[in-house]
Design a protein around this nucleic acid. Structure first.
Lengths: 186, 186
DNA sequence: TCCTATATTGACTGAACACTCCACAAAATT
DNA sequence: AATTTTGTGGAGTGTTCAGTCAATATAGGA
């Protein structure tokens, strides 16, 4: 068993439930079933843990999107692929997705390496630029559009997580809200 | 000079910059220029302070919206009035607006009195319901639409706050994104 | 088998923190 | 003016926490 992963898993759960301030490292170690010192063996500081967690989660989400959002079809289908993949992943990894939101709203977000952030968002911005060039979507700054799309996605996830819908209803709302998003963009 | 207000002002500033976990009550008192004990005279616990702060800010925002979003015109103008008022207020009270976001993403949000929350959102939900009945906007659950509208608004504020735009540009983006929002809803 | 490197433990520490307490000041009430 | 209530101060307190450390375990290579 990978203790490092146990620690990360415990940390997600507790951070999402109690926030960063509300979860001592001791509780994380306890929840993970490891000794206090073990946590600091893998993560020198609590901040390192938070950062590592964010990077880990974001990486896995991006991998999932890359593998599941097909590239072949037309522009709308490509955007939709990204949107659906994000939300399907979020349905299965709710704590992780909420952690991303928590992190984004927190001051940690500002200490992220901008280069790394750019690298992750660039493909999407490029896609949007192409849509603008082809006069498919509205001509507005792509980073603005990106912000709006992202927040739309998070908002839907929060909505779905906040209530107990059937799988069918969930998928329906995901489709429906993609159409809203699309109407917004075009 | 109202020390209570000094404390609230200092708290907003520090919470937004360092997060809840990163701002000790001692720093808040120091920033406010009052003694440690004075803070606890007004706010028995740190949590009470956070809560009071949220309620205070939310109240002022709502008052501003109520006074500035005119009621008379047609449906689109009424929705637009709300949107513009929110964002204009946010431009002048950026820390406060970011505090609301921080709070919403935090675990504090779950301990809010649901009755109070309902009371604040009801007018907007009623407005949306009317729009649906009149076939102006799409027929989806109003609380879902509300979530999407809210997050759209926060997202734009975050975008505007993140870069240094001229007043003109800011107003233009606020108008432009309202049209996006409207296209999404209708 | 020995040796070295890495993993794991949990008691410990020093600092930071939320909050208390009591003294005193200012205002309000009588 | 006397008395009560409310505001203000800041040193003090008990606790909690992030992070250390030295001892022990585990594993892998020579």
């Amino acid at each position: 068993m990978d203790k490092k992963q146990l620690i990360l898993d415990a940390a997600i759960k507790l951070f999402v439930e109690f926030g960063f301030h509300g979860t001592p490292t001791s509780k994380i170690a306890q929840e993970a079933g490891v000794a206090n010192g073990t946590l600091f063996h893998y993560f020198p500081t609590k901040d390192d843990l938070v950062m590592a967690l964010y990077i880990d989660i974001k990486t896995r989400l991006n991998e999932y999107i890359e593998q599941n959002a097909k590239q072949e079809a037309g522009f709308k289908e490509r955007v939709k692929g990204q949107y659906l993949a994000s939300l399907y992943w979020a349905l299965d990894h709710n704590a992780e997705f909420r952690f991303i939101q928590l992190f984004n709203a927190s001051p940690y977000h500002t200490v992220l390496d901008p280069v790394e952030v750019d690298k992750q968002t660039k493909p999407i911005l490029d896609m949007l630029r192409m849509g603008i060039k082809d006069k498919i979507i509205k001509d507005l700054p792509v980073d603005l559009l990106y912000t709006l799309i992202t927040s739309h996605t998070y908002a839907l996830n929060q909505y779905l997580a906040g209530q107990e819908f059937s799988k069918t209803k969930q998928h329906q709302y995901i489709s429906d809200t993609f159409e809203l998003l699309w109407d917004m963009l075009t």
